[in-house]
C-alpha cells in the first residue's frame, strides 16, 4: 500500500516538474524553430514547423544587419567596467563604514544603501537633462554612471554583511606587521572576499546586461548602444520578414543563455546568496 502510494507520488512529482519546464521552455523552442524557416511558413496551424529548408541565412542577416558583434562588444565592455567599479567602490566604502572608527559611519552606510529604494526609471528624466547639459549623452559615461550608481547600493549592502563576518585577527596581525589601510583593504581583505565578489558581480551583471531603458534615453547614435538594440532597431528594418526577426531575437538571447547554462551552478549560488540577503 505504502509502496503504491510512493509510486503515484513519484509520477505526480515528475508531471509537475515537466509541465512547468515545458511552459518555461516552449516559447523559446518555438522562437528557435520559426527562426529557421521562412516567413510564409509561420501561417500554419501546427504548433511547430519542420522547415522545408533550414534557412541559416536568417541568422546571417541577423548577425550582419543587426550589428550583433558591435553591440555585443559594447555590452561586454560596459558591463565589465560596471562590475569592476561596483566591486571596488563597495568594498572600499563597506570597509570604511564597517571596520573603521568614525562618527558618521552608520549614516553614510545607510545613505549609500538607501539608493536601493529609489526607482531607477524616475531618474530617467532629470538624468537626461543633466547628461545633456554636461555633454555626456552618447558617451560611455551615460551608461556607466547610472549602471554603477544603481548596482552600488546592493553591492554595498552585501559587502557590509560579508566584511562583518570576517575575523578581525588577520587585520590585527597585518597592522602589527606595519601594513597601511590601503594594503589591508586590497591585499588582505579583498582576497578573502572572493565568493562575495562573485555574488556582487553576478547580481550586477544580471541587473545591467539586459538594460535598455536608460540606453535608449541617453544614447541616440549606435556608438555605445548595447545588445538589446539589435532587437529594438532591427524590427523596423525587417518589419515584414518575421523569420529574420525571430533569428535576431534568438541571437540576442544566446550569449546570456549560453553563459548561464555553462556557469549555472555558480550563478544559482550567487543569486541565492545575494537575493536572500538583499
Amino acid at each position: 500500500m505504502k509502496e503504491k502510494e510512493n509510486k503515484i507520488g513519484k509520477v505526480v512529482l515528475w508531471i509537475v516538474l515537466i509541465a512547468v519546464a515545458a511552459i518555461q521552455l516552449f516559447p523559446l523552442i518555438w522562437l528557435v524553430d520559426f527562426s529557421l524557416g521562412s516567413s510564409n511558413e509561420m501561417f500554419t496551424n501546427g504548433l511547430l514547423i519542420i522547415p522545408e529548408k533550414i534557412r541559416w541565412d536568417n541568422y546571417v542577416k541577423a548577425f550582419v544587419d543587426g550589428n550583433f558583434l558591435h553591440y555585443l562588444r559594447n555590452s561586454i565592455l560596459i558591463n565589465t567596467l560596471a562590475v569592476i567599479l561596483v566591486v571596488i567602490i563597495s568594498i572600499m566604502a563597506a570597509f570604511a563604514c564597517q571596520r573603521m572608527k568614525w562618527k558618521l559611519n552608520g549614516f553614510v552606510s545607510t545613505l549609500l544603501v538607501l539608493g536601493m529604494m529609489i526607482p531607477i526609471h524616475a531618474t530617467l528624466l532629470p538624468n537626461y537633462k543633466i547628461y545633456s547639459a554636461l555633454h555626456l549623452t552618447d558617451t560611455v559615461w551615460a551608461l556607466l554612471i547610472p549602471y554603477v550608481a544603481f548596482s552600488m547600493p546592493q553591492g554595498m549592502f552585501l559587502m557590509t554583511g560579508f566584511i562583518q563576518a570576517l575575523p578581525k585577527e588577520l587585520e590585527e596581525a597585518a597592522v602589527m606587521d606595519g601594513c597601511g589601510i590601503y594594503r589591508i583593504v586590497f591585499q588582505i581583505v579583498t582576497p578573502l572576499l572572493k565568493p562575495s565578489i562573485a555574488t556582487v558581480a553576478i547580481m550586477t551583471f544580471l541587473n545591467n546586461w539586459n538594460e535598455f531603458m536608460m540606453a535608449s534615453t541617453y544614447l541616440s547614435t549606435p556608438t555605445w548602444k548595447t545588445l538589446p538594440f539589435s532587437v529594438l532597431e532591427f524590427t523596423g528594418e525587417y518589419s515584414s520578414n518575421y523569420a529574420v526577426q525571430f533569428a535576431v531575437m534568438a541571437l540576442t538571447a544566446a550569449p546570456a543563455v549560453i553563459v548561464y547554462v555553462i556557469l549555472n551552478k555558480h550563478i544559482t549560488k550567487g543569486v541565492a546568496m545575494g537575493a536572500v540577503k538583499g
Partner: peptide, 17 residues
Amino acid sequence: CIYFIPNVISVAVIAYL
C-alpha cells in the same frame, strides 16, 4: 537550470517574443 533560463534573457527579446 531550465526554470531560470527565461530570467537571463533581455526584456527586449521577451517583449517582442
